[in-house]
Amino acid sequence: MKTRGKIGGGGGLIGGCSSLGSLGLPAVFLLCIFFFFLGFFGSSLFSQQVETESSLHPKPRILSEKGYDPLPQGDSGDDFFTTIPFQILSWKPRALYFPDFATPKQCESIIKMAKVKLAPSTLALRKGETAENTKGIRTSSGMFISSSEDKTGILDLIEKKLEKATMIPRSHGESFNVLRYEIGQRYNSHYDAFNPTEYGPQKSQRIASFLLYLSDVEEGGETMFPFENGENADTNYDFRKCIGLKVKPRKGDGLLFYSLYPNGTIDPTSLHGSCAVVKGQKWVATKWLRNEEEYD
């Protein structure tokens, strides 16, 4: 009994082996070896699986944890950490999604400001184009408003947050273009950057675009990138189609995408458009960011 107690204390498998004495010493020895290796390899596989899952889904680092003391900032910097959550939707084009970039109340206030000044949206025309022969490409209504014109201060707050998210100075941003899309209205695929061979010499160029969705849309109204990752670019693409990477408008969320490569050339995969609204209304505030300070 004393011997069995000591063996049992050393491990359940060995203790179990001692109860098999009736099988004979060789058989007991082989069974003990079998169960030992079975337990060893089983625990190794389990440990490896846990380690793999941990590496694939690492615990997010929280800025408020100890060890994240802010560094000494420059004259124009901040002495605190800023957390603006985002998701990378695509690298071709470079497109990022920002959930809850603005509050519902802020979105409703921007819509209220815009409603009284809406007019049919216009296009920047290429050489040889006219308002008549481009009719139907862009069918929304819109208006322009700068943060300095907004007495509520909401657009000023949005610009400051956007400046931190993009690291592009707010002085390089155009006025907000607030747009409303009703049922059936859309914007066919286009580029926000202006190709000089089509539009003539440019004083500055649009680097990126930020879309702040001001409303939910029951059906349709997605922002789409038909050439995402090089898809559809080698075909006779119909610019009226709603295909490719699609981003569904959600009230308060933002979408940032870059029209230029870092070397300053236009990214062909940044072609984008607005799918037709099927049910409901789409409200969006667009901010175009340039490589030079904003000009009128």
Rank of each mutant, 00 (worst) to 15 (best):
E182N: 08
G16L: 11
A102Q: 01
I243N: 12
I266H: 00
D69N: 09
S44M: 12
L20P: 04
A193W: 05
D78T: 09
N263G: 00
L13K: 04
F239C: 10
K248E: 14
G11L: 10
S171E: 15
Y68F: 14
T134F: 01
Q281W: 01
Q205V: 05
S209T: 15
M224P: 03
K117G: 13
K112E: 15
K66M: 08
I7R: 07
S90W: 05
F37L: 13
N229W: 13
R250V: 15
G173I: 11
Q202Y: 08
L56A: 01
N133F: 08
K161H: 03
S140T: 09
T223L: 02
S109F: 04
Y181E: 10
P72Y: 07
T103E: 11
C107E: 02
E132F: 07
N177C: 07
K279H: 06
H57W: 11
N177P: 02
I7T: 14
E294G: 04
L96Y: 13
D253Q: 01
H57T: 12
L260D: 10
K251I: 10
S270M: 08
P196I: 10
N291E: 12
A285N: 00
S259P: 05
E129W: 04
F80P: 02
F37N: 07
L45T: 10
P268W: 04
A131H: 08
A285C: 02
T265H: 01
K241P: 09
P268E: 10
